[in-house]
Simulated assay, not measured.
Amino acid sequence: MSSFEIGNALYLVLLLIMVLTWYVAQNRQSLGRVVQQALAWGLIFVGVIAAIGVWDDIRQTLRPTQSVITATGQIEVPRAPDGHYYLTLRINGEPIDFLVDTGASEMVLTAGDADRVGLSLDELVFSGRAMTANGEVRTALARLDSVALGDHRDLDVTAWVNEGEMEQSLLGMAYLRRWSRIEISDNALVLTR
């Protein structure tokens, strides 16, 4: 912390002490009520801090998730607040979250997701190259025993594992082409087999 920041912090602490001293002096006849109000405001402050701390968890709970419409054989995915579409596929029985990326040619797994589905990173051969927004990265071809989305299951699916840093696995056109129809309607991505 710089000396300027320390000076600002001391100024704010002194100002707070002065305001509290004035408030207690003005309300010294009813100190019980002052303590109650201080506790109430303290609890409100703690509640706001707690809500900020768990906001990501709350947002994940409130974020719309994919719906499986089995009668028509469709998967409907609502658009997320950030404007993207996210799908959870079961790869080799393990749920993996994907960002739907129609600009990506292939299904691309992060190294962490590849490890979760049972691909040994030490056994993969990172001989491929891919151009990303962050530059060139090395990739490895992999075979997935099973990829399931809702009731729809595909066997022996090709995917690529990205050796570089990626926030989330990408679901590209190689997998999306397995669906007979891909449609965006009413802020939802609809996949039909």
Rank of each mutant, 00 (worst) to 15 (best):
L10G: 00
L10M: 11
L10N: 09
L10T: 07
Y11F: 15
Y11M: 14
Y11K: 14
Y11P: 00
Y11W: 13
L12F: 09
L12I: 05
L12N: 14
L12P: 03
V13Y: 04
V13T: 07
V13C: 05
V13E: 06
V13S: 12
V13R: 05
L14P: 05
L14C: 10
L14I: 07
L15V: 15
L15S: 15
L16H: 08
L16A: 11
I17P: 01
I17F: 02
I17Y: 07
M18W: 02
V19T: 02
V19N: 03
V19G: 05
V19K: 02
L20D: 07
T21Y: 11
T21K: 10
T21V: 10
W22E: 02
W22T: 01
W22K: 10
W22S: 12
W22I: 03
Y23T: 03
Y23E: 08
Y23W: 13
Y23C: 12
V24H: 15
V24Q: 11
V24M: 15
A25D: 09
A25P: 01
Q26S: 15
Q26T: 11
Q26F: 10
Q26K: 13
Q26G: 11
Q26W: 06
N27R: 14
N27L: 12
R28H: 14
R28Y: 14
R28N: 14
R28T: 11
Q29I: 04
Q29A: 13
Q29Y: 03
S30I: 01
S30C: 03
S30G: 08
L31R: 02
L31T: 03
L31P: 03
L31K: 00
G32A: 08
G32Q: 04
G32D: 09
G32F: 02
G32W: 02
R33Y: 04
R33I: 08
R33G: 01
R33T: 04
V34D: 04
V34R: 07
V34E: 06
V34P: 09
V34F: 06
V34L: 13
V35D: 02
V35G: 10
V35P: 05
V35C: 05
V35S: 09
V35F: 08
Q36K: 00
Q36P: 00
Q37V: 01
Q37R: 14
A38I: 05
A38S: 15
L39K: 11
L39Q: 11
